[in-house]
Design a protein around this nucleic acid. Structure first.
Ligand SMILES: [Mn+2]
Ligand SMILES: [Mn+2]
Ligand SMILES: [Zn+2]
Ligand SMILES: [Zn+2]
Lengths: 134, 134
DNA sequence: ATATGGATTAGAATAGTTCTAAACTTAGAA
DNA sequence: TTCTAAGTTTAGAACTATTCTAATCCATAT
């Protein structure tokens, strides 16, 4: 298992306390938190961190392939530490966003059914009630 | 074929010059224009219209089922005069948004492949190059 | 014609995000 | 070790999309 600093170095990125703190908060987090949520949580342990740093860090780590940004209907950007290809389920009641396996709708399925389009990416957002909200 | 004023009246909405102008611009338009695009275009013929009116009109007509609002990754709200169920294709080059038939991914398909989720809505955005951009 | 409730308007306010430029690390060279 | 240069952080300003406000206007019913 790679450490935070190993991953940063592999991408020619300086290892800073702020980046490490953001990554540690995100590590294993499946909640798809917003930038503001990350900012507030990291600020507890790191009171002088700036919101701009969280935005910068998310952008930098996304470009490096260490994070993903997820956007769903009428919501702010959510940060996803799961960088594998997958879709999302949004609970219409509590707003929770969950991962859904990619093979529910693959590019292959689309190619078979959508002749005429040259599809490079497919993004699916499903909506309904999550387990907790039913 | 219903006229603009017939549709407005059927929803207990006053027939105003602004609403008529917005609807006429949107009628048959398959471009998914933004509110600002609608505003600028309608303003040419109706110089005193306010941006707030376009926002109000879009919201009102959406609630009445006469329009749909579409949001795709990192983009502003687009207005869709096609209120049938369908998905979207976004050209990564020119930004153009096209309609894609709903049956590429129906709720049925999802239900079969996504056991455990109670899906009420499915939204698919595909990305690639449109005909013009290839 | 008149009244009244809804519609329109300009601009202020808000939310999310990006930009700016000065101050401060980090990492590598000397 | 120092030193340096490039990259990073920071607070706040700026920006963009959208909603709110409250005064004015006007569409419709009487
Ligand atoms: Mn995810
Ligand atoms: Mn459409
Ligand atoms: Zn829920
Ligand atoms: Zn195109």
């Amino acid at each position: 298992m790679k450490t935070m600093s190993t991953m940063l170095k592999a991408n020619d990125l300086a290892v800073t306390a702020q980046r490490t703190a953001v990554m540690e908060f995100l590590h294993g987090n499946t909640d798809h938190p917003s930038v503001d949520t990350i900012y507030k949580r990291v600020k507890k342990r790191f009171p002088y961190i700036s919101r701009a740093t969280v935005y910068n860090t998310v952008k930098t780590l996304t470009r490096a392939g260490m994070l993903q940004e997820v956007l769903v209907q009428q919501d702010k950007t959510r940060v996803d530490s799961n960088v594998s290809r997958h879709h999302h389920f949004k609970c219409v009641r509590c707003g929770r966003i969950e991962d859904v396996p990619y093979d529910i709708l693959t590019a292959k399925h689309v190619s078979e059914h959508a002749r005429g389009y040259h599809v490079e990416e497919v993004r699916v957002v499903m909506e309904g009630r999550c387990k907790r909200c039913r």
